[in-house]
Design a protein around this nucleic acid. Structure first.
Lengths: 188, 188
DNA sequence: ACCTAAACTAAGCAAGTGCTTAGTATTAAT
DNA sequence: ATTAATACTAAGCACTTGCTTAGTTTAGGT
């Protein structure tokens, strides 16, 4: 009865996500999204409601991409703390695009919107962070008989460290990042 | 011969800085600056040239404020690594405004503008970072006979950690931040 | 072939962006 | 009191913002 869409929502969202990842939320305009996604504003609004809708889908897309490219590997590994360390190195590669580090989209968003972030956005962020922290805890439990309290603290430590790595990767060179990662895991 | 200014540039810049600190660069409009600084756009442009000019002066103002409120204390301290640890705790207080953590203006800027930041802005950032790293090195040298290479690595480690703290302070609670700081200094 | 529901195009909306400028007020030296 | 240099006010510039809408095209069920 009705005409078919000329685009696949998952495909155009991936392109939107890349744009948000490079530019941030506020600095990315709907006109830029139009060009990058290759569809008209009408299509954007009819598929995703508004700019925030596009962003929320982009966050979900980022979660999927991160899961596929680096998180699944962490999940599968039985190498304990070393698996987490490897995840840190994997993250740097993951966030790099032609020698430009884009950081982590989630961290970028926290830093840009902070506590004034909309509730739906916030829930995506918390969702993502909880997932990663859970895996860190899982891997920390593999190594030795640390008590739950120590593991909890170390997981918090690693979460903050990862955010530092995200920001720092935008300015620091590889050597400095290596220094950071090596030192981070020295005490664990 | 000529009329006097009704405002003091240092005073209005401090207000601009607070706004940029809360909102970021791009999201802060000249109209918002007008209101916050309490002067007309004409005055803003005649005193600082353009929006970027206001921002650069704001960065300098931030540097001064940070120096006065937390960096000088670090500089004076002879407590080695503990002085740096105290600096981390001081930073959290420094960045807090009515229970809202604004992070570090420098880190916020790096995260927002990344490598595409204008050269003058970049130079303020590098200037600031170099200063802090220098102090970290100074304090690390106090403690024990570490070789230069180790100290350099540890300074890099601390610089990235501090950026993590800046971002994380926007979302994490005090307990998690404490876990992070305590763990950070455990290996040093 | 006709109809209808949805997808498209492109123009347009009010409001906001960084910045400028014409006109007026204030200062201090003459 | 006149002059000239600067500071101020407020209106306005062209452009961009997120979003809408009128008009057209495309699809499948009848």
């Amino acid at each position: 009865m009705a005409r078919k869409k000329k685009y696949i929502e998952e495909e155009v969202i991936e392109k939107a996500m890349e744009l948000f990842w490079r530019n941030g939320y506020e600095t990315t305009s709907v006109r830029m999204l139009e060009k990058e996604m290759g569809i008209n504003q009408f299509s954007i609004y009819s598929s995703f409601g508004n700019k925030k809708g596009v962003f929320i889908e982009s966050l979900a897309c980022y979660r999927g991409k991160a899961k596929h490219e680096i998180i699944n590997k962490l999940q599968k590994s039985t190498d304990g703390i070393n698996a987490i360390k490897q995840y840190f190195y994997d993250f740097i590669k993951f966030s790099k695009e032609n020698r430009l580090n884009k950081g982590c989209l989630i961290t970028n968003t926290v830093n840009e919107l902070g506590e004034k972030a909309d509730q739906e956005i916030m829930s995506e962020i918390v969702n993502f962070a909880t997932n990663v922290r859970g895996l860190f805890i899982e891997k920390l439990e593999l190594n030795n008989k640390k008590n739950t309290e120590t593991i909890r603290k170390q997981a918090n430590y690693l979460m903050v460290s990862l955010q530092g790595l995200s920001v720092a990767s935008k300015m620091f060179d590889q050597e400095q990042l290596d220094d950071f990662i090596e030192n981070t895991f020295e005490s664990l």
